[in-house]
């Protein structure tokens, strides 16, 4: 069952990732990325990361992709949207990198089974104080990783201000850009 679900999610993820790059119409690419995000969320559920699966759906599928769709539709791209000239080089480099990574992974001593501590703790019958995934993430986030968490909020603030300033009217219009054409 676990194997079946992994291969289902994995094959759809790979297919959608390829379609994102192959489709010429940006709207189709965004939709295929949406399908990929849903399947990644499913993969997270099989890996017992339920909180992240929910966050993946809400933040990626709900917020980020809607932003992409807005921009694609605002810009209303009708021009020819072909590939770069160096498609062969890109594919060759990509396959080379992939072969390298797979060679490294096949030689590495990676665990075949999930860590014993987790399964043992579950089997030991801590039913009274069973800790959910969300609780564990929250605890780690607010104790060990409190400082990075605050920095993340700062990043979001800076991104918000930056986006507002960049998208303001008149930042790119006047002057040298027009004349250079």
């Amino acid at each position: 069952m676990a194997t079946l679900s992994f291969f289902y999610f994995g094959s759809v993820i790979v297919l959608c990732a390829l379609l994102v790059v192959i489709f010429r119409n940006p709207v189709y690419s965004v939709i295929s990325l949406l399908v990929m995000f849903f399947h990644i969320a499913g993969l997270f559920v099989t890996l017992h990361a339920e909180f992240l699966a929910a966050v993946q759906l809400i933040v990626y599928a709900g917020a980020i992709l809607v932003l992409y769709l807005f921009v694609v539709m605002i810009l209303n791209l009708q021009q020819d949207d072909s590939y770069q000239r160096q498609v062969k080089w890109g594919l060759g480099l990509g396959l080379l990198a992939l072969a390298e990574v797979i060679a490294i992974i096949s030689k590495a001593a990676l665990p075949d089974e999930p860590a014993q501590s987790k399964t043992a703790a579950a089997a030991a019958g801590e039913a009274a104080t069973v800790v959910g995934n969300t609780e564990m993430v929250g605890k780690a986030l607010y104790t060990t990783y409190l400082f990075p968490f605050e920095v993340a909020s700062l990043i979001l603030l800076v991104a918000m201000i930056g986006a507002i300033i960049m998208a303001k009217k008149g930042i790119m219009e006047p002057g040298p850009l027009r004349e250079s054409k």
Binding site: A2, T3, F6, G10, I13, V14, A17, L18, V20, V21, P26, L47, L77, D81, S82, Y83, Q84, Q86, V87, W89, G90, L91, L93, G94, L95, A97, L98, V101, I102, I105, S106, A108, L110, P111, D112, E113, P114
Partner: peptide, 27 residues
């Protein structure tokens, strides 16, 4: 149970797809 390396290979494939996309797309 699925070995960890399967997940890594899946992730490597998706990553390389992204790299190729950055290299070959014009938009």
């Amino acid at each position: 149970m699925i070995p960890l390396s399967y997940y890594m290979i899946l992730s490597a494939i998706v990553f390389v797809t992204g790299v190729v996309g950055v290299l070959i797309r014009r938009n």
